[in-house]
Amino acid sequence: MLLDKILEKYPQQEDSLLEILLAFQDAKINHFISEDEVRQIASYLHISEAKVCSVLSFYTFFRTENKGKHVIQVCGGVPCHVESDFNVAKTLEKELGIKVNETTENQQFTLEYTSCIGLCDEAPAMRIDDKVYTKLTPNKIKAILAEYRVYM
């Protein structure tokens, strides 16, 4: 199993927890961590399930429920806000037919806000999965989404 393979790469100590969760969530299809997996990780590290859950709920990167195949994160920082002539989130909402924090019906896209991603000098910016897109315009957003719909 995928989780077993990842677990054996890490020492059985508490400070491996974040690293394990990040690596596993990244590798797993649908990118979220289930209750069974919480149990397995807790027993591997000899810590309580509550400890695993406290980490899962504290950090915004971790997900405990299914999200879209691609997660689109719009930067909500002030530099991106003041450098946009249009509303990035609203444009995406319109294009995808969903609101922020929702997932499209075909499970392809989830839309959410992120805090500053350090691309303030190329604002406005967004992230799709691990890839960043900068100097956005409404047309650029349409083109990016079209690419994801066709190829990814």
Partner: peptide
């Protein structure tokens, strides 16, 4: 690696995070 928490830039929060805690 951090996991999307701003407060982890604070020195003791960062230390806790390295230790695998919130």
């Amino acid at each position: 690696s951090g996991a999307g928490s701003y407060v982890c830039g604070e020195e003791f929060a960062l230390i806790e995070s390295i230790e695998g805690k919130p």
